[in-house]
């Protein structure tokens, strides 16, 4: 069997999540190729070539792929699909955007957000915000799959794959990139961080998130937020952890002033250790927390920062 893995990147570096998607491909088993589609993305290609378990890196380096517009990427992937039994991408916003187009163009179903591989045609995925887990057998000849990276452990990066340059350029001409507003942060990426500290409605306003920053700096942590905090306008949506935001599974997750709605739990309950700080002893977050501290966060956070 042969498996194509689409690489998530920003034209500069390969996202660590792709290493987990390759792990899912290894669990399926077969000859694994990575596709790097971007513009001036040679650094990404060099990184991709080192990913363990990968025999070939296919490179489509063209301005048409710079912003990974779904219309263009889906045409490229569909063109390559003939050679593969499985096509995988990480269930991040790029993959979630273009992959269903690939499935439709191939006239197959897509299996979204898999967290486990039972066999080459049977996969495990959460439904209902993770309140149920479905085991699904695909009957399609080609399997189009998005992978939730929290379900798999990253493969190592000491391999050496053959690099093959593709000369095909697919430009649908129906969409154009206008601009990006990228949230700049010196802190680690939410999805890749070993420690995440998140604030909820209890933070009361955006300024109070500075209370989390001091702790995040000491721990090397990323900062997240609940949907309630995002909806209240405290922080931007790219910080949201939950069913419709980012799914994280760090070694340590610290939930501050977060009540613990099921939609939030869906985004963090696979974390190895969960700490909850909340003044309401009945908050549902305490039912999933390994360590709960019933306290006013405005007292507890400065004290925690000083003691780390």
């Amino acid at each position: 069997m042969s498996i194509l893995v689409f690489a998530e990147h920003d034209n500069k570096s390969l996202k660590a999540d792709t290493l987990k998607t390759v792990a899912a491909a290894q669990a399926i088993g077969g000859d694994i190729h990575i596709l790097v589609a971007g513009s001036n993305c040679s650094d990404v290609v060099n990184e991709a070539a080192k990913v363990n378990g990968v025999s070939k890196v296919l490179v489509a380096d063209n301005a048409a792929y710079e912003h990974q517009l779904a219309e263009n990427i889906s045409l490229l992937v569909t063109e390559l699909a003939a050679d593969y039994d499985h096509i995988l991408t990480t269930a991040l916003t790029t993959g979630k955007n273009f992959m269903p187009r690939v499935a439709a163009l191939l006239d197959v179903a897509q299996i979204s957000d898999i967290i486990g591989v039972e066999s080459a045609d049977t996969f495990v995925r959460p439904i209902y915000a993770g309140n149920a887990i479905a085991t699904v057998q695909s009957l399609d000849s080609k399997k189009v799959i998005t992978v939730r990276s929290t379900g798999f452990d990253a493969v190592a990066t000491d391999g050496s794959a053959e690099v093959i340059t593709l000369d095909s350029v697919q430009d649908a001409g129906t969409s154009a990139h206008v601009n990006d507003e990228v949230s700049e942060s010196e802190r680690p990426d939410l999805g890749a961080a070993g420690i995440v500290i998140s604030g909820g409605r209890g933070m009361q306003n955006g300024e109070n998130f500075t209370l989390l920053e001091g702790i995040a700096d000491k721990l090397g942590a990323a900062i997240g937020a609940s949907r309630a905090a995002v909806d209240a306008g405290f922080v931007p949506n790219d910080m949201q952890v939950g069913q419709t935001g980012k799914i994280v599974a760090p070694d340590l997750y610290i939930a501050v002033g977060i009540s613990g709605a099921i939609q939030h739990l869906a985004g963090m309950k696979d974390s190895k250790v969960i700490v909850a700080i909340n003044k309401d002893p009945d908050a549902p977050i305490f039912q999933v927390a390994d360590y709960g501290l019933v306290a006013d966060l405005f007292d507890a956070l400065p004290e925690l920062e000083s003691k780390l």
Partner: peptide
């Protein structure tokens, strides 16, 4: 709404 922030397309 994308992972890195906001992206506008036409």
């Amino acid at each position: 709404e994308v992972d890195s922030g906001l992206q506008t397309i036409a």
